[in-house]
Computed example of a mutant assay.
Amino acid sequence: MNAIGNGPDSDSKSVTPTAAAGALQAVSMRGDIGRTVGPARTASNNVQVCRTRDYISDDAAISGGLVLYFSAKRVGAGVEVDGDAHALRADIEINGVCVAVTFDGGATSKAISNGAVLVPCDPVPPSAFGLAKFEAGTLFWRKVERTFAVGGAPVYWRTQGNTPGIAGENAFSGAAGTAVSKIGVAGAMTTAGSWTALTAFWGPDLVAGVPDGPMRAVYTYGASLEEGQKDNGGDGASGAGGYIRRGLANVGGKKVAGVNVGMGGERADQFVSTSAYRRQLSAFCNIGLNGYGGNDFSSNRNKEATSASLDQCDAIIKLLLIGGKRIGRLVWHRSPTAPIAGRPSQIRPFARASLISAPIWTHPQRHSLPMAR
Rank of each mutant, 00 (worst) to 15 (best):
N6P: 04
V15E: 09
A19Y: 00
A21R: 03
R30S: 14
G31E: 01
T42A: 09
A43V: 01
C50M: 11
R51I: 13
R53F: 15
D54E: 12
I56D: 13
D58P: 09
S63M: 03
L66K: 00
Y69Q: 00
A87Q: 13
E93V: 13
G96D: 13
V97M: 10
V99S: 11
V99K: 08
V101Y: 01
F103N: 01
D104Q: 05
K110M: 11
S113H: 08
A116R: 06
P123F: 05
P125M: 09
Y156V: 10
S173H: 05
G174I: 02
A176G: 12
G187R: 11
T190R: 05
S194C: 01
T196V: 00
A197S: 07
V210Q: 01
M215C: 05
R216H: 02
T220R: 01
S224W: 05
K230N: 15
A237M: 13
Y243N: 12
R246C: 10
G252F: 03
V256H: 00
V261K: 00
R267I: 04
V272T: 02
Y277P: 06
L281K: 00
G288K: 00
Y292Q: 01
S298A: 08
S298Q: 06
S299L: 10
R301S: 14
N302E: 11
S309R: 02
A315Y: 14
G324C: 13
K325I: 08
V331W: 06
R334T: 15
T337E: 15
I340W: 14
R343T: 14
S354H: 03
H363Y: 14
H367R: 04
H367P: 06
P370E: 10
